[in-house]
Computed example of a mutant assay.
Amino acid sequence: MDAPKNHLFTEDRHLHCQAAIDPMLRAVIDKANMNGWGSIETMDAIEEVMKNLRIAYAEDPDPAEDQPIADSGNANDFGEFPSAERLIKAFVEEREKP
């Protein structure tokens, strides 16, 4: 992805970001199509993933600052993903709202 043309926050900066992201998203949808997924279901999945990422970001804006999880020594053990429980909890809480 290209860097912003102007590093200052201008009123059209979001449009430049959309233009930079657009070809990557189209490529994801194309690849999903080639592997048997429909365009609409892929876009729906992208929207759901984005909702979950927003929830995770709201909970922990910089997960890189979190304390590392102790290494078990097992190369196949990728550790526990701490945001998963928060995502599920937030999803359930949101569904229970009137």
Score class of each variant (00 low, 15 high):
L25S: 03
S83E: 09
D66E: 07
A58F: 13
F81K: 02
E80P: 07
G36L: 14
N52H: 14
N33K: 03
E41R: 04
S72P: 02
W37Q: 04
E41P: 00
I46N: 03
A45L: 15
E41T: 09
R26V: 13
Y57G: 02
F81M: 09
I46Q: 02
A58M: 04
D60T: 06
M34W: 09
D60F: 15
A45R: 03
F81T: 09
G38K: 05
A32T: 07
V28K: 02
P68W: 05
P82G: 10
V49F: 15
F78S: 03
P68E: 12
G79C: 13
D71G: 02
G79L: 12
N33I: 09
G79H: 13
L53H: 08
G79F: 14
L53A: 14
E65G: 04
D44K: 10
M34F: 11
G36F: 12
A75H: 04
M24L: 12
I69H: 00
I55K: 09
A58P: 02
E47A: 15
N35M: 09
A56F: 12
R54F: 09
M34I: 09
N74Q: 00
D60V: 10
Y57D: 00
I46F: 13
A45W: 07
D66W: 07
M34Q: 13
S83M: 10
A45Y: 13
M24C: 11
A70K: 01
D62V: 06
F81E: 02
N52Q: 06
W37P: 00
I69S: 00
D66T: 04
Q67L: 10
F78Y: 11
L53S: 10
I69D: 01
G38W: 04
S39V: 15
D22Y: 15
S39D: 09
M50P: 02
N76T: 03
M50N: 01
S39P: 00
I55E: 11
E47L: 14
R26C: 15
D62W: 11
E47M: 14
A64F: 14
P63W: 14
G73K: 03
P61F: 11
Y57K: 06
E65T: 08
E80M: 06
P61N: 05
I69A: 04
S72F: 01
F78A: 08
D60K: 05
I40R: 09
E59L: 13
M43W: 11
I55H: 06
V28P: 00
A58S: 07
M34C: 06
V28M: 12
W37V: 03
S39Q: 13
L53Q: 12
P61K: 05
Q67N: 00
Q67T: 01
W37E: 10
K31S: 12
E41C: 13
R54L: 08
T42L: 15
R54K: 02
E80A: 13
E80G: 04
P63T: 12
M34K: 08
D22K: 13
M24D: 08
A58G: 10
S83Y: 07
E47V: 12
N74P: 00
Y57A: 05
